[in-house]
Amino acid sequence: MLLKDGEMDMQMEKFTPMGEVVADDRARIAFGKAGVRRDDKYAVAVSGDGEILLTPLVSIPRRELLVWEDELVRASLGRALAQSAAGELEDLGDFSQYAIDDDEHENDDAGIV
Rank of each mutant, 00 (worst) to 15 (best):
S47A: 03
D39N: 09
R63W: 02
K33V: 00
S47W: 00
Y42T: 00
A27K: 12
D70A: 12
M1I: 09
A27I: 09
D40H: 03
A30N: 12
P17L: 05
L72M: 12
A30Y: 00
I60D: 03
S76W: 09
F31Q: 02
T55D: 04
I112P: 02
V22K: 14
R26F: 11
A43T: 03
W68A: 11
Y98L: 15
V36E: 00
L81D: 07
E13S: 14
K41W: 00
R38P: 05
L81P: 01
S76F: 09
D91T: 08
E71Y: 11
M8N: 03
G48T: 08
F95H: 13
L53K: 07
M1Q: 09
G32T: 13
R38G: 02
P17S: 09
K33A: 04
E104G: 01
Q97K: 14
V46Q: 04
A30M: 02
G111W: 02
A86Q: 10
I29E: 01
Q11G: 09
P61E: 04
G32N: 07
I60E: 05
M1A: 06
D5C: 04
R62T: 09
F95R: 15
E7H: 10
D70S: 13
V73A: 11
D102Y: 12
A110E: 12
D70W: 01
V22E: 10
M18I: 06
Q83Y: 01
